[in-house]
């Protein structure tokens, strides 16, 4: 899968671990040889941009709605998508990507209402679920296993 295009789709940045996990995933996947794009809302991308000002970890940082528009209009697409979700909107955006893109979806379900939220997912995806808000370590460990499998 080296060279495969990966989209990290960030939702509302209200839950702190999203930014650190997005930076971590972007860096690790890039080092594994994946072509990584990080998409988010204005607030989510600004948080990332300030945390990684020179773009060492997130090399391609783009607007979420523009990215979806490009996929819908067939100007761009991805092989893999990691969709961050801690609310119904995040799930709704991921369902949209599942419908418009050929990407394999990994749903990263985190935050305070993970069980209820994970149950609302009806599209085909691999779910990575941790009920964490401030401490990213458990989610990082689960994603390490996913990346290990992807690198094989």
């Amino acid at each position: 899968m080296t060279g495969a295009k990966v989209l990290l789709m960030m939702g509302c940045p209200e839950i702190p671990i999203q930014t650190s996990i997005a930076l971590y995933l972007s860096h690790k996947l890039t080092n594994l040889g994946f072509d990584v794009t990080v998409a988010g809302t204005t607030a989510a991308t600004r948080l990332l941009k300030v945390s990684d000002y020179d773009g060492h970890y997130a090399k391609k940082l783009v607007d979420l709605d523009k990215t979806l528009e490009d996929i819908i209009e067939k100007r761009n697409d991805f092989d893999i998508c990691f969709a961050f979700m801690h609310n119904d909107s995040g799930m709704t955006y991921a369902a949209t990507v599942s419908a418009i893109s050929q990407a394999r979806i990994y749903s990263i379900v985190f935050g305070r209402h993970t069980e209820e939220l994970a149950q609302t997912i009806e599209f085909d995806c691999e779910k990575i679920v941790t009920q964490d808000v401030h401490n990213p370590v458990r989610l990082k460990n689960k994603l390490d296993k996913v990346m290990e499998a992807m690198a094989r």
């Binding site: 939702g11 979420l64 609310n87 119904d88 909107s89 995040g90 709704t92 955006y93």
Partner: peptide, 8 residues
């Protein structure tokens, strides 16, 4: 109409 931070 869905907004990431404000729901649908």
């Amino acid at each position: 109409y869905t907004k990431p931070c404000h729901g649908s």
